[in-house]
């Protein structure tokens, strides 16, 4: 069980694809201009990750080591094609606004990275969990980035959510503040780089704070041990 907990921790925090591995930056920065686009691409990537990890883990003993990479790429390409067709069928608006970035999931380094580094060496269930958690970690970062950029850029939340969730989702749209001059930088790619930089800095700051707290607690336990020891000696 602790094994799965480790996988979850790795995917969501310790080894987060968006904040630590910095893989898949191209879609991360290009499609995170609104929350809806970010969520759409995040879900698609997550689905691809789970499916490819599943397939790769199943065939891992049959694949000759020398040609494993081309085979993984073919698996990924097949899965991405299927998902692209699905998105075209069910979320056509989102499919149009994400454009080239759906087929480009094939080239997303996280997908091939997890297939090579994890799924090709681990049994089925851990591989699926790993794909799910890596995908979720990526989606969360995308979602956060999309939230910041949409809020800064146009002052709204969930603008155009109906493209992803269907017509009922228009109620999700929140206009936080109204502005005549949009803050264009947040919507343009340089803004994405800056916001991502701040997110990474925030994550590092949280890690550093945790580390300093751990050191402190370690100091306290040592003090208690010596105290107990001195008690014993006095009793003895």
């Amino acid at each position: 069980m602790s094994d799965y907990r480790n996988i979850i921790h790795q995917g969501l925090w310790q080894n987060n694809p968006g904040l630590v591995q910095l893989l898949g930056l191209c879609p991360l920065l290009a499609t995170s201009s609104t929350m809806t686009n970010a969520l759409g691409l995040g879900f698609a990537t997550m689905l691809v990750l789970v499916s490819t990890n599943l397939v790769v883990s199943l065939i891992r003993s049959q694949v000759p080591n020398e040609i494993r990479i081309p085979i993984f790429v073919m698996v990924i390409a097949a899965v991405v094609t299927a998902i692209e067709q699905l998105m075209q069928a069910y979320t056509y608006q989102l499919y149009q606004s994400l454009g080239i970035f759906i087929p480009l999931i094939v080239t997303n380094c996280i997908v091939i990275g997890r297939a090579e580094a994890f799924a090709s060496k681990n049994p089925l269930l851990p591989s699926i969990v790993d794909g799910l958690m890596m995908g979720l970690g990526f989606t969360l970062v995308l979602f956060l980035l999309g939230t910041c950029r949409e809020l800064l850029g146009q002052g709204t939340l969930f603008d155009g959510a109906e493209a992803l969730f269907g017509p009922w989702a228009t109620v999700l749209r929140v206009e936080v503040f109204k502005t005549e001059s949009h803050f264009l930088l947040a919507i343009l790619p340089p803004g994405a780089f800056m916001v991502l930089g701040f997110l990474i800095a925030a994550k590092n700051a949280v890690d550093a704070r945790q580390k300093s707290r751990q050191v402190q607690t370690a100091g306290i336990t040592r003090a208690r041990v010596t105290h107990v020891a001195s008690n014993e000696t006095s009793a003895g």
Binding site: F183, L184, L185, P190
Partner: peptide, 10 residues
């Protein structure tokens, strides 16, 4: 540049 890109009109 930051201002010009963000608020071209002003």
């Amino acid at each position: 540049v930051f201002l010009l890109v963000s608020f071209p009109q002003q």
